[in-house]
Design a protein around this nucleic acid. Structure first.
Lengths: 225, 225
DNA sequence: GTTGCTGATAATGTATACAAAACTGGCCAT
DNA sequence: ATGGCCAGTTTTGTATACATTATCAGCAAC
């Protein structure tokens, strides 16, 4: 199982972090389908820690709406229908657009260089015959993270953390053909231009378009759900 | 069920909720000034519960950025400068604008009636010689809550929960003169019109303007900080 | 005087025991 | 049959004890 989608199952991390990663993994892998109750003790057994860090993890998952609370206070795996996904992309478009605008005002030459370097890696990953999708995803995430840190808003970062669903991004990207991936890289370079020009509106517009294209790619890739 | 998430110690609520409300109160009242460490045991003594619900409360306050984590994992009271406040209002403007757009599409006649009734109460509170600011605030919050529920997006609701700072609203409103309060009520009625017409763009624009005016009222009311 | 170490101290992280609340099933009355 | 109620069981909420980690004062070496 080479799995473990996003940040790895860092054995060194705290018990709460491991619990979070593992439970989230269960949900995203579909092992815990929507509606499945998330019982603290059972999960504690699975993860191999006590209930305390599991509770911690569940609270985080609840904030990020992976889990929802029943009227009585029990947690169950949330059901994301296509409307939810569309809403996630809409919010991402707004918030990342805002982040891009802020980044355009604040980006330092060092950050610009980092972005250029990162996007070069993306272009390299998609230029070859069989695009290296894993590499694309990793660098793509890094690209967006750099922008987020350039935006210098802790609030934006925490809000987007629960919104940027790497699994969704992955499902989108795996359906991209090479032309799509190349277009994505091109949009990134447009973003860098906007940052270099310190043009907030331009940056916002490009980012918004970038994300909304991803939404439609995702919708085209999924039957209807 | 009179919600009451803002005002003080709801004796009936859970220990974690009381801890949350009380600690948040300490921060907002300035009893715990920015940079002050938030030690679990000390807070547990103050609130009169054990560390467990206090930890719970602190996690929530951390997500909402009332507290920030030092590199070593300790929590301290966050320092909100004027940029932070501006950022909060900017995000609120975006997200509540989005909520208004969604509400415009979805609002039911019953919800419209509720909004009209609520705004009538607001108008009544500000029409008198000495405006009833407390009443204004309560109904104002209810007004925005109705819109939020009409928008039918759990994500928006949870995101805005950490953003809608009643204390900030309060500091703004107490500096409003009667004309300002009346203008607020007028903007609300414009919103209702936009909802009734199911005009998403109109609703979004009015809401955005509504919030951005609040930002500038706030900035005018506070020296510079 | 400054730097770097080291051990005491104090804080958070985790496990577990106990309390309270919510679901479940069946029984009874209608 | 159906609806409501009650006890047993399960699940979450809270308290507390223990483990682990970060902080900081003091001291030694340079």
């Amino acid at each position: 199982m080479p799995d473990n989608t996003t940040s790895a199952s860092n054995a060194a991390a705290s018990a709460a972090d491991r619990a979070y990663a593992e439970i989230r993994g269960l949900i995203l892998a579909g092992d815990a389908s929507p509606g499945t109750p998330l019982r603290e003790e059972a999960l504690a057994d699975i993860v191999g820690v006590s209930r305390t860090p599991v509770r911690d993890a569940l609270r985080r998952l609840e904030v990020e709406l992976y889990a929802v609370r029943t009227p009585g206070g029990r947690l169950v795996v949330a059901d994301w229908d296509s409307d939810d996904v569309a809403e996630i992309f809409a919010l991402r478009a707004m918030l990342e657009g805002h982040a891009a605008a802020r980044a355009a005002r604040r980006a330092t030459p060092a950050q610009l260089a980092e972005l250029r370097h990162c996007n070069a890696a993306i272009e390299a990953a998609v230029a070859i015959e069989q695009p290296d999708v894993a590499r694309f995803l990793a660098e793509n995430r890094r690209f967006h993270d750099i922008i987020l840190s350039a935006s210098a808003s802790a609030r934006l970062s925490t809000m987007l953390a629960g919104l940027v669903e790497q699994p969704i991004v992955r499902r989108t990207a795996t359906r991209y053909d090479r032309a799509d991936l190349a277009r994505s890289a091109h949009e990134h370079s447009q973003l860098i231009q906007a940052f270099a020009a310190h043009d907030e509106d331009w940056a916002r517009a490009v980012m918004t378009a970038h994300i909304r294209r991803a939404l439609h790619a995702f919708q085209d890739a999924t039957p209807s759900k």
